[in-house]
Write a protein that binds this DNA or RNA. Sequence first.
DNA 1: CCTATGACGCCGG
DNA 2: GCCGGCGCCATAG
Length: 109
Amino acid sequence: MKKDYYHQIFELVCQIPEGRVTNYGAIADALALGSARTVGYALSQSHQIAPLIPAHRVVNRKGELSGRHHFNPPERMAQLLEAEGVQIKNHTVQDFDARFWSPLEGKTD
DNA sequence: CCTATGACGCCGG
DNA sequence: GCCGGCGCCATAG
């Protein structure tokens, strides 16, 4: 498959622990994609390629739910996060620094 | 081939 | 610490 980076991104997103979140840049850096935009683009397609991955655990560097409009309905992203214990305020993850999970942290190479 | 756009992020003012 | 600008890479037209 040419778009193999899709698979890498989806695999990594699936490794995000429940109740934790990460950002696009961290994923791009962990997979050496070189661009956080690529991660966002892949996730935008994720719903039709791999609808079961926890894409709601990926937010931007500010902790904002920038991709909420790609959910159905949009508020479902915050809903899923709150269900995992992540508090959302004004479409933003509260205590983002503590909730942040680094992909490299999970690998522990 | 070139231009525009996007679930982004860093840098300089 | 907010704002504007630029870089980044993949896909669409």
